[in-house]
C-alpha cells in the first residue's frame, strides 16, 4: 500500500512540478505582490496592505476596461459561437464545393492574429480601405471606424469573431458527425420538421460541445488582445482598452508591477468564477451519453 502511494506520487511528480512552477507558484506570488508596492531603483518594495486595491477601485481606466471587456465578451461569445454553428450546419451536408467552403471558413483560424490585424487595418482604413471602397460604390461617405470612440470596440470585436468562428466550427462539425443518423431518421418518420429535429435532437446532442466551446470563447474574450496592440493600442482614449491589455500596459510599459499584479488577481478571480459557473450551470442541461 505504502509503496503504491509512493509510486503514485512519483508518477504524478513531473506534471505536479510543471504545474506548480508555471501555474500555482506564480499565481500565489501574484497575490502576494498585490499587497506590496512597486520597487523602483533605490526605493525597495514595502507592504502596503489593500492600497493597490483601493487605487484600483478609484481608477476610472480600470472600470472602463471592465465595461469594455463585458461588451467585448457579449459581442464575441454569442456571435462567434452562433456563426460557428451556422457554418458547421452549412458544410456538414452535401453541398457543392464542401471542401472549399470548409477550408475558407477555417482559414482565419490558421492565420496569426497579428497578421489578421494587419489585414483588417486595411479593411477599416478610412477613405481607401476595403469597407470604404465598397461604401463608396453606393455613394456613402467614408467613416473612421477604428478612430471613433463609439465604434472602435465593435470594430476590434468583429476581428475576434472572424478569427474565432472557424475554429469553433471544427468542434461543432465533429459533434454533428457523432449524432446517430437513426435518431434523425426516426424523427423524420414521426413527421418532425427540420426545425423540430434541430431543436429536439441536434441541439441537445451537441450540448457538451457547446459547453466546451463556450468556456473557450469566454476565456478568449478575456485573452485575445494581440490585434488591439496592432490596431488601436487601446485607443482612442481607452475605448478599446480591455482588462488583459491594461494589465500588459501597466506591467510592462508603466513598469508598475504591483498594480499589474492587483489587476491580474481580479482577472484570475473572474476567470475562475466564470469557468465554475459555466460548468455548474450548463452541466444540468448537458446531455451526456
Amino acid at each position: 500500500m505504502r509503496r503504491e502511494t509512493i509510486h503514485a506520487w512519483l508518477m504524478l511528480l513531473p506534471a505536479l512540478v510543471v504545474l506548480a512552477t508555471f501555474m500555482h507558484v506564480p499565481a500565489v506570488e501574484t497575490i502576494i505582490a498585490s499587497f506590496w508596492s512597486t520597487a523602483r531603483g533605490a526605493r525597495p518594495s514595502h507592504f502596503v496592505g489593500l492600497k493597490n486595491y483601493e487605487r484600483m477601485i478609484a481608477d476610472p481606466v480600470f472600470w472602463q476596461a471592465m465595461r469594455n471587456n463585458l461588451v467585448y465578451a457579449l459581442v464575441t461569445v454569442p456571435l462567434s459561437m452562433g456563426l460557428a454553428l451556422v457554418m458547421a450546419l452549412l458544410v456538414q451536408g452535401r453541398v457543392a464545393g464542401r471542401a472549399f467552403l470548409r477550408m475558407a471558413f477555417f482559414t482565419p483560424t490558421v492565420l496569426p492574429l497579428i497578421a489578421v490585424a494587419n489585414i483588417w487595418i486595411f479593411f477599416y482604413t478610412p477613405g481607401f480601405g476595403l469597407i470604404d471602397q465598397i461604401r463608396g460604390l453606393f455613394g456613402l461617405h467614408a467613416q473612421n471606424l477604428l478612430g471613433t470612440g463609439s465604434t472602435a470596440l465593435y470594430a476590434v470585436a468583429a476581428v475576434a469573431v472572424w478569427k474565432e468562428a472557424g475554429f469553433f466550427m471544427i468542434f461543432y462539425l465533429a459533434a454533428l458527425q457523432t449524432i446517430p443518423p437513426t435518431l434523425i431518421e426516426a424523427a423524420r418518420l414521426e413527421g418532425a420538421s427540420r426545425w423540430q429535429i434541430f431543436r429536439r435532437i441536434t441541439l441537445p446532442m451537441i450540448m457538451p460541445t457547446t459547453l466546451f466551446i463556450s468556456v473557450n470563447a469566454v476565456i478568449d474574450a478575456v485573452r485575445l488582445v494581440d490585434h488591439i496592440f496592432q490596431m488601436t493600442q487601446g485607443g482612442p482614449d481607452n475605448a478599446t482598452n480591455i482588462l488583459f491589455f491594461y494589465i500588459y500596459r501597466v506591467g510592462f510599459q508603466f513598469w508598475d508591477t504591483a498594480y499589474a499584479a492587483t489587476l491580474t488577481v481580479v482577472m484570475i478571480v473572474i476567470l475562475s468564477l466564470l469557468a465554475l459557473g459555466q460548468v455548474v450551470l450548463i452541466d444540468r442541461r448537458v446531455h451526456y451519453k
Binding site: T125, L146, G147, G235
Partner: peptide, 19 residues
C-alpha cells in the same frame, strides 16, 4: 483633415493613394 484618430502606419499609404 479626416475626422477621428488617424493611424500612424497607414499615413504614408494615404499619401501615396492621394487620400
Amino acid at each position: 483633415m479626416e475626422p477621428g484618430t488617424l493611424d500612424w502606419g497607414a499615413t504614408p499609404k494615404a499619401f501615396f493613394e492621394g487620400n
